[in-house]
């Protein structure tokens, strides 16, 4: 069984701030890491492959520097890695990103199961997984907290929808997005690092995809546009108190006054 895990390189810290006076973005050195939720997806896929046989590929989209997250996935045990990287993909919103990823998955071919993290820590939309499933016309289950069983033809999962726990069977091929508690991710291994140091990251450009119509990718393929970014608003009715211990007494007074005590 061939499993693909979608991963993304994200900023290591949310340190992009706007200087309110000049409107200029304050940028410290942008360090990056693998989206933490993707680690759970990768761990989940590695465990399924180990137990039931099969390979685990990872796919990502981004600039060439994103090869480092694919290397990280190799150090955890992924077999092959693909990076969609082309100027044609720049400026992609959710629709264009999921289209490119779905095309990449078609290019890999023969995939039974696609596993995604529940969302990324930079976009926080949780949209790309279900959108890929729609492009591939396959079923998906989001917010999966447990893999119940796997056989040749499908997978049984448990998903949490608010106060309901739903157990579902999905026939292959299908896509799941997994919650954080599904499996504790292993640490990257030094042995694996040595073993995979020469392993290539396969870069996929527009020319490598089944659909080469550039207007479906990148900015042109993106229906949403960011018109403007701005610092979050401030509360104008704000009192500032300074001090330490004495603040506790003032706060006590305030809570009594507001009848919380």
């Amino acid at each position: 069984m061939d499993i693909v895990v979608c991963i993304k390189q994200v900023p290591a810290a949310s340190n992009v701030e706007v200087d309110e006076k000049t409107g200029v973005l304050k940028r410290e050195g942008i360090e990056t890491k693998m989206n933490p939720y993707d680690l759970y997806a990768l761990e989940c896929a590695l465990r399924i492959a180990k137990e039931h046989g099969g390979t685990v590929s990872v796919i990502s989209m981004g600039p060439l520097q994103a090869r480092s997250v694919i290397r990280e996935a190799y150090m955890m045990g992924a077999d092959t890695g693909y990076l969609l990287s082309d100027t044609a993909f720049a400026g992609s919103d959710v629709l264009a990103t999921s289209f490119a990823l779905s095309q990449g998955i078609r290019a890999i071919g023969g995939v039974s199961l696609i596993v995604c993290g529940k969302q990324t820590t930079d976009g926080d939309t949780a949209q790309v997984g279900p959108a890929i499933a729609e492009y591939l016309s396959i079923p998906h289950a989001a917010w999966v907290t447990q893999i119940v069983s796997v056989d040749e033809t499908g997978i049984e999962v448990r998903q949490t929808l608010a106060d309901r726990i739903q157990t579902a069977r999905l026939g292959f091929p299908c896509l799941i997005t997994v919650e954080k508690d599904i499996a504790q991710p292993r640490l990257p291994s030094y042995l694996k690092k040595k073993e995979t140091s020469g392993r290539l990251v396969q870069v996929l450009t527009l020319q490598d995809l089944p659909d080469r119509d550039a207007s479906k990718y990148g900015l042109e393929g993106s229906p949403t546009q960011v018109e403007k970014v701005f610092p979050p608003g401030s509360n104008i009715h704000r009192e500032v108190w300074r001090g330490d211990k004495e603040l506790a007494d003032r706060l006590y007074g305030l809570l009594k006054e507001k009848k919380h005590l």
Binding site: V10, P11, S14, N15, V16, E17, V18, L25, T120, T121, D122, G123, D124, P223, T224, Q225, V226, E227, K228, V229, F230, P231, P232, G233
Partner: peptide, 13 residues
């Protein structure tokens, strides 16, 4: 909220 930073974005379709 956008870009994973302390910024808000105005988005249109």
């Amino acid at each position: 909220p956008a870009f994973g930073g302390n910024i808000m974005a105005r988005i249109v379709t």
